[in-house]
Amino acid sequence: MSDILVSARGLEVHFPLRGGKGVLRAVDGVDLDIYRGETLGLVGESGCGKSTLGNALLRLVPPTAGTVTFDGTDLTALGRRAMREMRRRAGMVFQDPFASLDPRRTVAQTVSEPLEVHGLRSGRRERAARVGELLELVGLDPAVAGRYPHEFSGGQRQRVGIARALAGEPDFLVCDEAIASLDVSVQAQVLNLLRRLQRQLGLTLLFISHDLSAIRHISDRIAVMYLGRIVEIGPASAVGSTPQMPYTQALLSAVPVPHPELERTRQRIVLRGDVPSPAAVPSGCRFRTRCPAAFEPCPDVDPALQPVGTAPDHVAACHLHGVIGTPVDGRTAEDVSAAPVD
């Protein structure tokens, strides 16, 4: 197996509910390995805990249980100062390029902040030179360094955000919905840029998005999240074309493709109802309240991730693949994906 850069074990982030009664399980028991040099796509509906997981991996929100290991170091055991130094090695790109840049600081000030914080370049002139390099790296003219964020378009701002994240020469980059608020053509530019940077700098990328097409385009592996848990993970080709968990199947089937003929004939699995609140996670399989294939063990037994399909390293948490119980009318996961239920 290849080298693991980031690893989470039993990671939980629970937020106390207002009023003091109960907790909100934003991340609820995640085991995850991210291999050095890979792009891992993290997908799921809004509110399922993607951002919280991304933040918890960088200890930007404190986990309430579990550990995060970064290149062999247990981040959860690190002191404040050591953690701050660690931050040089992991960058983050945020969703909204309009909100993630300080409106009162120039592009140069923003991009050089990591350099100052970690003392990476001594002297004003050297920092300015490095800022120029970084801007060029993300496809911006170094001459714009003195300008303020509001003078840029969304795509350009996102490039500035990426330049800042890269300034510390990190090994790991978390992109949280980095293209969600951009126009289609600009999304393509930023996706290309991220792919180029990843190759050029040998980055390890966690690409969080709710856009499955973008995820399938950029990722080596895809992880699917539902109500604070990873419910399926595997090679992008396997998860993207032969998903094994009913939720992944529904999610994929809901992604519209720009081909009218295909769209007219394609069967969509329309899920009934809304995502349950993460403050009231259903018993057993957390997807059972919306699952078109739920059967008798589902409300009682929480399925664990287990090998599925034919691709190596492809795992899913669903009783259809397990040994407990028999699906009603003897369906298997493959049957369910072949004959979508409405």
């Binding site: 053509s185 393509a188 530019q189 996706l191 290309n192 097409s213 399938r216 993207g240 720009p258």
Partner: peptide
């Protein structure tokens, strides 16, 4: 249309998904 990820697009010679047209 070209800037949308197309999963049916042929792979690059080095076996990678090609860049998006922008």
């Amino acid at each position: 249309l070209g800037s949308l990820p197309d999963l049916a697009a042929p792979l690059d010679p080095d076996g990678r998904v090609p860049d998006l047209a922008t």
